[in-house]
């Protein structure tokens, strides 16, 4: 399942897109995120997968630095530690 966490507002699309079918629940991305955006949780089908924390969902654009403008410059980020390309960002 592909889950889009986030929203569109006047300034653009702010979604963290997670492909839960690819996720093996290793949790490396959770540790890699400097803003503590992600967490591991059981989904509706009983698999442990990564998701965006509830408190962050409605302010992703402010909390997450965004991949291109922010974390792509860090050596370690949620995308670089993931072996299965689970996470992507729309901004």
């Amino acid at each position: 399942m592909i889950v889009n966490y986030g929203y569109t507002d006047g300034s653009g699309d702010y979604y963290i897109v997670i492909d839960t079918d690819k996720c093996d629940g290793c949790g490396k991305c959770v540790d890699a995120c400097p803003q503590n955006v992600l967490e591991l949780a059981e989904d509706d089908y009983g698999d442990i997968v990564v998701r965006v924390r509830d408190e962050v969902k409605s302010k992703v654009g402010y909390v997450c630095l965004g991949f291109n403008p922010g974390c792509s410059k860090n050596e370690v980020n949620c995308r670089s530690v993931c072996e299965h390309d689970v996470i992507s960002h729309t901004w």
């Binding site: 399942m1 592909i2 569109t8 969902k57």
Partner: peptide
């Protein structure tokens, strides 16, 4: 009937 893709908006 299994969910494949989901987008929500509960900010705006």
């Amino acid at each position: 009937g299994v969910v494949e893709d989901f987008v929500g908006n509960d900010k705006c």
